[in-house]
Simulated assay, not measured.
Amino acid sequence: MSPRELVVLGTAGQAPTRTRNHNGYLLRWDGTSVLFDPGEGTQRQMLHAEVSAPRIERICVTHRHNDHCLGVPGVLNRMAQDGPGRPVTLHGPDDAFEHLRALAVVAAAHVEVTVEGIPVRDEPVEVARVAGARLIARALDHRVPTVGYRLEEPAGRSFDAAALADAGITGPDVGELQRRGELRGVRLADVSVERPGQVFGFVMDTRDHPAVVDLVRDADLAVLECTYAERHADLARDRGHLTARQAGRAAARAGVRTLVLAHFSQRYPDLEELAAEARAAVAELGGRTRVHLAHDLDVVPVPPRRSAPARAAS
């Protein structure tokens, strides 16, 4: 099976630095890719990261600020060059629709682009299906209408080989049992347990808000912005951003397995301050979230599937 992993193309908030490119986060998921918030320079970062442009199925933008979408024209041209004829869908809040459509027009790329606006609502809005997983969006709290994204795979089943053998279910009959739910008096629940699906969450520019926790709840991997350190919490609130402490607390409350910190203000040449704050926040809540401080061109794997609970004895 193709890997599920995040490729970090850029980590700078608002303005790039000598060592940090503008935003850009590519999620590889079962042979396809979703690109989130491609800022200026994303096309070049893709070359450095050896990212295959033709595999990009969707580009998801959280809001219309240019550090989160100005890379769209370059990415579309790269797609046209590397994989002509492959269509792509560009998603973003309704408020960003005209801005995103203009970027697609400016690209003048020979690629079929569909721009789809997302209603900015306090409840989850289904955006698309990605390799069988459900991509949803929900409103956040920034200076302009903004959404976060959540990709959630449906639950599967883990079979108990011994129980199948005892029940005399083998070969094609296993698939038949899974489709029908019962076969020759044997119920699916008698020989298997539900296996949680994997979840990816993506939250960029926002103030601390309950939707942050909801978007990344039980996520195996979640990207959260942490533009500021806690000592600049007033700036974070005024400008519509999270602090590293707020990001760590949200991830711990949500039960995130691996938290990727990103979108850093240029005022912090040493990012370890932010990582330490997030880790301390997780520890204060007794959480088990692993905190990964993102650097440009990092590749972060989605953690292995959670183990299915043991099947109760009959």
Rank of each mutant, 00 (worst) to 15 (best):
A139D: 03
L140Q: 03
V130M: 05
D141E: 10
L103P: 05
V144H: 06
A137T: 08
D122T: 13
I118A: 02
R143P: 05
A107G: 10
V106D: 14
P124A: 10
R150D: 00
E112S: 14
P145L: 08
H110E: 15
R138M: 14
V120R: 03
L151E: 02
I136L: 15
H110R: 15
V147Y: 00
A109E: 03
V147G: 02
L140W: 03
P119C: 11
A107L: 13
A108V: 11
T114F: 09
D141H: 11
R138Q: 13
D122P: 04
H99F: 13
E123H: 14
R129W: 10
R101V: 09
L135P: 03
Y149C: 06
E126V: 15
G148Y: 00
A133G: 07
E126W: 05
A139G: 12
H110C: 12
D122K: 09
V105N: 12
V130E: 00
A102D: 14
T146H: 04
G117E: 06
P119Y: 09
E153M: 04
H142D: 11
A104H: 07
H110K: 15
A107I: 13
R101D: 11
A104F: 09
A108S: 15
G148I: 02
V115F: 07
E126N: 11
V147K: 00
V130F: 01
G132I: 05
R129E: 12
V130P: 00
P119R: 13
A104R: 06
L135Y: 03
D122Q: 11
H99R: 14
V106N: 12
L140R: 01
Y149E: 06
A109H: 05
L100H: 07
R121I: 04
L103R: 04
V120T: 14
A133E: 02
A107T: 11
V125P: 01
V120F: 06
A108K: 14
V120H: 04
V147H: 01
V106C: 13
I136S: 13
L140Y: 03
V111D: 00
A102T: 14
V127M: 06
G132W: 00
E153P: 01
G148S: 08
E112R: 15
V120N: 05
L103A: 07
A109R: 05
L100S: 07
L151V: 02
V113R: 01
A133N: 06
V130C: 06
V144G: 05
A102Q: 14
A128W: 04
V105E: 15
V106E: 15
E153N: 05
I136W: 01
T146L: 09
V144C: 11
T114I: 12
V111M: 06
T114H: 11
A131E: 08
T146D: 04
R134I: 07
L140M: 09
G117L: 07
R143G: 11
A133D: 03
H99V: 14
A104W: 09
